[in-house]
């Protein structure tokens, strides 16, 4: 019960409706058992493709070689943490927003006494909390069991990785909220969202670490928010970003999250005005 978490009289009373939303999305997800088991396998398969691709590439280079500053075990670990992270931060906030618009439910949401961005974000975090337990941990364990994944570089690195991972989830929630609001202006929403996945998988460093990009692209990428989805936590785990480096990366990650939340707010205000004028 949400009341147990935040009694009405508590200073957290304002959070009650959001907790209820988080809980609802959690329950909805649990209902989909088939997708659950297939979902786990899919993450495993995806990491597996990349295991083989990297193995072949490192094999070309000769054993013990480094590519883009990674040894093979490091690269493999980067892949494993990458897919495990994706299983954590993944949400369909944008698709949900889009279907609300398509079914004309957004106008109804407008009249509820809640902040839509906070509601959407709590849904995303509720989903992530659920995914952590049911996807991320089992997938991580499975990958570590099957492939020679490296442990975190140090206890500190692990702590920072957790922090960075949490920020990833917030960041992706913020990004998807913006993407959803942009996508609903087209009628090919699903096409736009599908393109988003492919583009973000490239720009987040999930598939290829930033070191592999040509110099000019790299310079641009480090000033974009997307690497903070995957590359930042991945490098922290491996100990490739420590001390001041890690702190700087985390600060940038947090900064981007705040910036994108603000952008989402601006976009939402524009959308709400449009809906009030045209109907949702």
């Amino acid at each position: 019960m949400s009341t147990a978490l935040a009694p009405a009289s508590s200073p957290f009373a304002f959070a009650r409706p959001y907790l209820a939303f988080a809980r609802t999305s959690f329950l909805n997800l649990l209902a989909y058992r088939a997708r659950y088991f297939v979902g786990i396998l899919t993450y495993f398969f995806n990491a597996t493709v990349w295991y083989y691709i990297w193995r072949a590439l490192f094999h070309e280079k000769g054993d013990g070689a480094t590519l883009g500053g990674f040894t093979f075990p490091q690269m493999l670990t980067y892949v494993a943490t990458g897919w495990a992270l994706r299983s954590f931060y993944f949400n369909e906030v944008d698709r949900e927003l889009a279907s609300q618009v398509r079914e004309g439910r957004l106008a109804m949401t407008l009249i509820k006494p809640v902040d839509i961005q906070a509601m959407t974000l709590s849904q995303a975090l509720g989903e992530s909390a659920f995914r952590l337990v049911l996807f991320t941990v089992p997938i991580g364990a499975l990958l570590a069991l099957v492939y020679p994944v490296l442990p975190p570089a140090s206890p500190a690195a692990f702590g920072l990785f957790l922090l960075s991972g949490l920020l990833s989830a917030l960041l992706v929630g913020a990004i998807n909220f913006c993407v959803g609001l942009v996508a609903i202006r087209t009628t090919s929403i699903l096409g736009v969202l599908r393109a988003k996945y492919l583009v973000l998988e490239l720009l987040s460093g999930l598939l290829v670490p930033v070191a592999f990009f040509p110099e000019p692209a790299r310079k641009i990428l480090v000033w974009l928010p997307f690497l903070h989805m995957n590359d930042t936590p991945g490098r922290i785990w491996l100990g490739l970003a420590t001390g001041a480096d890690a702190a700087r990366a985390l600060a940038l990650q947090a900064g981007w999250t705040v910036a994108l939340l603000l952008l989402g707010r601006v976009l939402w205000n524009a959308t709400a005005r449009r809906i009030e004028v045209q109907g949702g």
Binding site: I53, L57, T186, T187, S188, G191, V192, R194, A195, Y197, L198, V199, E201, L202, L203, L207, V208, F212, F213
Partner: peptide, 24 residues
């Protein structure tokens, strides 16, 4: 215009996944 957006989005997706191959 909407169709053009869809084609563009679709092309961006293809370009992104093709880039992965080219990069590697």
């Amino acid at each position: 215009a909407d169709f053009a957006t869809a084609v563009l989005a679709s092309f961006l997706g293809t370009a992104a996944s093709f880039s992965v191959v080219l990069l590697l």
